[in-house]
Design a protein around this nucleic acid. Sequence first.
DNA 1: ACCTGAACACCGTTCAAGT
DNA 2: ACCTGAACACCGTTCAAGT
Lengths: 219, 219
Amino acid sequence: MARPRKPLLSRDRIVEAAGELVDAEGLEAVSTRRLAAALGVSGPSLYNHFRTKDAILEAVADAVSARVDLSMFDGVDGPSDWRPALHAWAHSYRAALADHPNIVPVLARGPGRRPAGLRLADAVFGAMTAAGWPPAQATRIGALMRYFILGSAVASFAQGFVDDETAYDPADYPHLGQAHLLADRRHEVDEGAFETGLTALLDGLTLQYEALRPEPPRP
Amino acid sequence: MARPRKPLLSRDRIVEAAGELVDAEGLEAVSTRRLAAALGVSGPSLYNHFRTKDAILEAVADAVSARVDLSMFDGVDGPSDWRPALHAWAHSYRAALADHPNIVPVLARGPGRRPAGLRLADAVFGAMTAAGWPPAQATRIGALMRYFILGSAVASFAQGFVDDETAYDPADYPHLGQAHLLADRRHEVDEGAFETGLTALLDGLTLQYEALRPEPPRP
DNA sequence: ACCTGAACACCGTTCAAGT
DNA sequence: ACCTGAACACCGTTCAAGT
């Protein structure tokens, strides 16, 4: 066959298959030939729909961003709204990344020109300024939340340790006696740390917010 | 030449050259052939000193971990010490990563069996427990600090936006009108966000610490 | 022990050729 | 317009051969 009457491929089909391959086997497993084979097509065909392999991965990443709920920012317009919105958003964001951890390194490169990534950045910034944060602070909040959430997805703590008791010699690492157990409890550990960190972050931001708009002095 | 009387290579020389290549041209630029050429040697020679290319990158990453100052944890043994220690450590850690941003994705995979990475995890955990944090909380602090610090290095906010005004159509992204300026001010923006986030995190942890050991009730 | 060139099974991407 | 096979310049890694 040369050209079929109905196109065999579409951008959507390619992105879907690429996403499945990334989820199942990781970023390194995605080659144009492997992906094409999964779609029943030859390697170079993909280049009729995307300029590069990287553009395909960007599209996969953006599809993940698109699943992050932003609706909690809609009603934000005062001092009492921003905290719960940020909390709910952070959890939605993290959940989306946890569903597709292998693509996170691509997301970490930034929104660039990816529409869903940009919508996300726009929504946070808009909501924080609406809540009364000065623009420079709103930018910082968007940035630091990004650090924490992406960091939690890309730099899992528990998963970073090896499930091998002998790897952690007490003579070298006196406090890592239990570290080999982390791998087993990794969801528990990483989720606990995420919630603890998120709460600390929001508590700390609340202090800064209150310092920004001081209570009227009591008589 | 076949085998020279003095070895041409050593693990240290390889790690040093690999680090320079990563810093100068990025992770993707490191191929065994390119690295070997920089060392005046043929590709397969490297396999006499490292089992895989990945092991070389792990060694480069560990050399970066080794430059993180841990001395501030030495004297920690009470309630007033942990916060400044954590603050100083976070800055030292971030500075080390900022010097070698291209290797951060390798570091993000976790300490695994890398000695410097393990020493770092050991020191934080040891200091937090010494300061009176319960072990489960100490683990969480190590994890959440890791998320934030690695996240700030791997998921730069300012660098994530494109330096192109037309990329951010106000109709699509009403609040990103200034986003194209972020690239220019990226150090300022990312450093400001890091400090703001770190302060918030430590403020929040301080609240948790105080809740843990309540003040003796006032009569 | 430590280096070499040849070889293997892969890559991403280009391009002329087909319909 | 959209697919194909052939081709190019690369990869990581193995291995027999050399000293």
